[in-house]
Design a protein around this nucleic acid. Structure first.
Lengths: 402, 402
DNA sequence: CGAAAAGTAAGGAAACTTTCCTTATTAGAG
DNA sequence: CTCTAATAAGGAAAGTTTCCTTACTTTTCG
């Protein structure tokens, strides 16, 4: 039920909101242009800008004399951080409200030392903030991506046996309260599955973004790197699932493999036992391709022309078998392929996978390679943090001015 | 982007809309009560009622003198029809705008006579309308449910080999233009998958409805009767998939079965070859239960106590194998079981399925039997038609009064 | 110098709120 | 049983908020 009555002040809230949205999407705008885009009249647009400027969310670009003044979102109105957690290290990226990167650092995980996750996050953030010339309490939101899925009910992180130090059941609460000193504001902290963040990145910056030739609001992302995972976007929104486990295909039973029972105890079986890195590395060796890891071996096969086809064909068929249930269940318009192994397989693997998939299920989604070569998880974390932050700033403006 | 500028008349549209929503959800209301529910003041609520009454959408209940007048949605402001298409017959239900059933008829399909689908729909609707004392052009919307999936792009019906006469590629267009005479308005016609309609019925009237103990906005419906199908509701909205094939699990490859290639030619294999009616009937016979159809055999097993357990256990394990990919992909909060065979299996089968499913996938959704014993597809068709019709009436009011 | 664009001011329209008044019903006291 | 006071409904008038239109001034640029 809409508890919000349609009172006139609701209008201003709506208009302020769309104005800020437009400013952050389309860059600097004049008052007149903003009026045209929102559908509001010139005087109203002026009032609106004055309000937003007074609230500190918007600033005028320095202009000479009485030329049309350009306004933009004030970069320093908020800062956000994205963190990509892998077993080897924590990568941190800091951005201002416009999405400009203001610092990027990396904190390696020392061998054999299992440090508390909260301490490591604090350390990493402090270092990055120092590099950017701001402080941790100035951050509005921190989004942490990792190879696991936080349960929305409990906050506990599941599916992440490879990340020691991240299984404290109070982790979400502690991250929200122990990052800063006593009297300083705490940034909001979200923990999110890394593949989900990659999907957010695809939707705001990648192949499915607005305006791209493959723009779409219903798609899946298949990530195969060290692990296997999928993310699902439905109607433009990420679908996490009730326990946060949507798209966790690694343990899903697949055709051609014997059924694994007592799944919570058995770590083998399911899709990962035919498509996971160890299985693929073994397959590659049996087909005559070697490498230190599966992605390397696959890359060699993809670059070997016809010689690599037997390996790629077998791999494509295995992956299609894992993708088939996803296609039958949600019938996506598009599946974006990413992660080290799929990137390594490149176009040859993509083509073979498409053919193999279309042979075993009835819907025929397009398969495309991700174009986000560089740090999709970090990019998604930043996008997610910015989206949330903007939302909050809009709402605060509204409340403050009522 | 919101192209609608936040002009004051937008407010009235919003308020009119929520008012009608409240009236149709909560039954007759006084002006004062409506004001309280919407958060609007008394005078505004009065104006609003006057507008809606003038537009013919609302009427005052006859009241004596100066007691508080009760207003309700005017039943005759719109009529809708739902049709459940099965190979044996067409069932038609007619309702007024308040959802009251005003007629219900059935049209048997003559043997060996493949009549055009449009003709049969027209015939069925004409008969039902005559019984209700209205005419076909008075219908605002007709929703047709059948065991197949219309492709949203093309409108063609797929996955429905059992319905001859329904494969005309122009069917959607013809249904929209050939049901009435030349100068009469045509009702809007939607063709929808029957399991999807059952899911809509669950959400508005069944176990997941608002206020029910198991209310939820993310769930799946598993339907096993003559065929196998699933429907997926995410964030309260039905997910149909890009080609309309979401939840078509029948042809999905499953663990323990050999992979079926060239799926568009081969009609065997996949989930239906272990969980479909013929396979289950065969299984039942091998376990000593007979019956004219699979549901009957399963019912006997469910009523046989421990004697039936071997059959039910095997059946539960098969169905769990088919459900596992759905759970791994979307991680629903709840799965509603319905359709003749699952209803026949009842609580014993549900329990065994729950245990079998929890043994092979990590998320543990609740499995519940549908409580909609009577014609869920028809109920869903009516609900769907009413929802759409209300939407349209609201918008018309807005436009008309602007 | 004149036209176009940007900013500003004033008056008006649409929607909602608050406040007050009248009228009818209802409950309780005599 | 009758009268009176409280309560609730309906309605009218005045005031707010938000936006729009129109008209005017200032500045830039051809």
């Amino acid at each position: 039920m809409d508890q919000v009555p349609g009172t006139p002040s609701l209008l201003r809230a709506i208009n302020d909101r769309t104005a800020l949205q437009l400013l952050s999407e389309q860059g600097p705008l004049t008052r007149a242009r903003l009026g045209a885009l929102t559908g509001l009249s010139k005087p109203t647009a002026t009032q609106l800008m004055d309000r937003l400027e007074a609230a500190g969310l918007v600033e005028a670009l320095p202009g000479e004399g009485r030329t049309a003044r350009l306004y933009r979102v004030r970069p320093g109105a908020a800062y956000v951080a994205g963190i990509d957690v892998t077993p080897a290290r924590l990568r941190v990226r800091l951005c201002d409200l416009t999405g400009e990167i203001i610092a990027e650092t990396s904190l390696a995980t020392p061998r054999r030392e299992v440090k508390d996750a909260v301490d490591r996050v604090r350390e990493a953030l402090t270092e990055a903030c120092a590099a950017a010339g701001i402080t941790v309490p100035q951050l509005n939101r921190v989004v942490i991506g990792l190879g696991g899925a936080p349960d929305p009910q409990t906050g506990r992180i599941r599916y992440a046996p490879h990340l020691p130090g991240w299984h404290d059941p109070n982790l979400p609460a502690r991250l929200r309260s122990e990052l800063t000193g006593q009297n300083e504001p705490d940034p909001a902290v979200d923990v999110e599955n890394d593949v989900n963040l990659a999907a957010i990145a695809e939707q705001s910056l990648g192949v499915t973004r607005k305006g791209a030739p493959l723009e779409c609001r219903d798609f899946a992302v298949l990530w195969i790197g060290d692990g296997i995972g999928a993310a699902i976007v439905i109607d433009g929104r990420l679908h996490r699932g009730y326990t946060g486990g949507a798209g966790e295909l690694g343990y899903m039973p697949v055709s051609g493999q014997p059924l694994t029972r007592n799944i919570r105890r058995n770590v083998n079986g399911g899709f990962q036992s035919i498509g996971g890195a160890p299985a693929v590395l073994k397959l590659a060796r049996s087909k005559g391709f070697s490498g230190s890891d599966a992605a390397t071996a696959v890359r060699r096969a993809a670059e070997a022309g016809p010689l690599g086809t037997p390996l790629l064909q077998e791999l494509a068929e295995r992956l299609a078998v894992g993708l088939a249930p996803l296609v039958a269940v949600i019938d996506p318009e598009l599946i974006v392929l990413t992660g080290a192994m799929l990137q390594a397989g490149g176009e040859p693997l993509r083509e073979l996978m498409t053919a193999a998939l279309h042979d075993i299920v009835i819907p025929r989604p397009k398969l495309v390679l991700s174009e986000l070569a560089e740090a999709p998880v970090l990019a998604g974390a930043i996008e997610s943090a910015l989206a949330q932050t903007k939302q909050e700033l809009f709402d605060n403006t509204r409340r403050g001015n009522r």
